[in-house]
């Protein structure tokens, strides 16, 4: 993000990491407790766990790769 200090990709990574962690955390709780929302379909796929994990991993990659101060 030329001329603006912190790269936009870093922001995006940060947001994805936070969202991923929140959704993964809830999905894990849901899986352990077996407390699934009644109106949602296909809960047996544990979507929040793998989708949250995927978002968090992708976000972490961007945070590390585009962290401020990192030499190009």
């Amino acid at each position: 993000m030329q001329g603006s200090g912190i790269p936009i990709w870093f922001f995006i990574g940060l947001v994805l990491t936070i969202y991923g962690a929140m959704i993964l955390g809830y999905g894990t709780y849901e899986w352990i407790s077996g407390n699934y929302p009644a109106t949602v379909q296909m809960t047996y796929l544990h979507t929040p766990v793998w989708w949250g994990g995927l978002l968090a991993a992708l976000g972490a990659f961007y945070v590390i790769k585009f962290r401020p101060g990192r030499e190009k």
Binding site: M22, I23, Y26, G27, E30, Y36, P37, T39, V40, Q41, M42, T43, T47, P48, W51, G52
Partner: peptide, 8 residues
Amino acid sequence: VRYLGPGL
């Protein structure tokens, strides 16, 4: 609404 639970 059909597929996405809390958070999602």
